[in-house]
């Protein structure tokens, strides 16, 4: 008896249009392009910081170009989207059991959101924003 294995035809480049869930997955994955590019920007900034005051201040001035402003807006959206989806996933990735029951998922994700907001305000405060 011969059995033919099931071969599913999956379009390699357009499969994620088949279901909104796949599209959300890809939207999340695509944010890494902006995060990665932003990390490169941070490395460049460090190089300028190490090169001295004039170099660093020229770097800060270069950040004010229209292209940089657009990139920052995109990177901010990407970073916040990554953060929100990451925190929403924590309740699935690390459920907490207390006695017989599991802690509600909203508590776990909520705790992450609270920690995120607190940490962000601490960083903004340390950076002298207010």
């Amino acid at each position: 008896m011969s059995r033919r294995p099931l071969v599913r035809e999956v379009p390699p480049t357009s499969w994620f249009f088949r279901h909104p869930r796949y599209l959300r997955y890809m939207a999340r994955e695509v944010t890494c392009i902006f995060i990665g590019a932003y990390c490169v920007l941070l490395v460049v900034g460090l190089q300028r910081l190490a090169a001295g005051q004039a170099s660093y201040e020229a770097f800060l001035a270069a950040l004010r170009s229209p292209a940089s402003i657009v990139f920052h807006a995109l990177a901010l959206v990407a970073a916040v989207y990554h953060a929100a989806t990451w925190f929403n996933a924590t309740q699935k990735a690390m459920p907490v059991q207390v006695g017989e029951d599991f802690l509600p998922g909203t508590v776990i994700s909520g705790a992450h959101y609270v920690a995120w907001v607190v940490l962000s305000f601490v960083v903004l405060f340390l950076a002298g924003v207010f």
């Binding site: 920052h72 901010l76 970073a79 990554h82 990451w86 992450h112 940490l119 960083v123 924003v129």
Partner: peptide
């Protein structure tokens, strides 16, 4: 990335 990058992007956006 989730905890730190958004606020850092916010700072350089300013």
């Amino acid at each position: 990335i989730a905890f730190c990058i958004p606020v850092i992007v916010l700072l350089t956006s300013m």
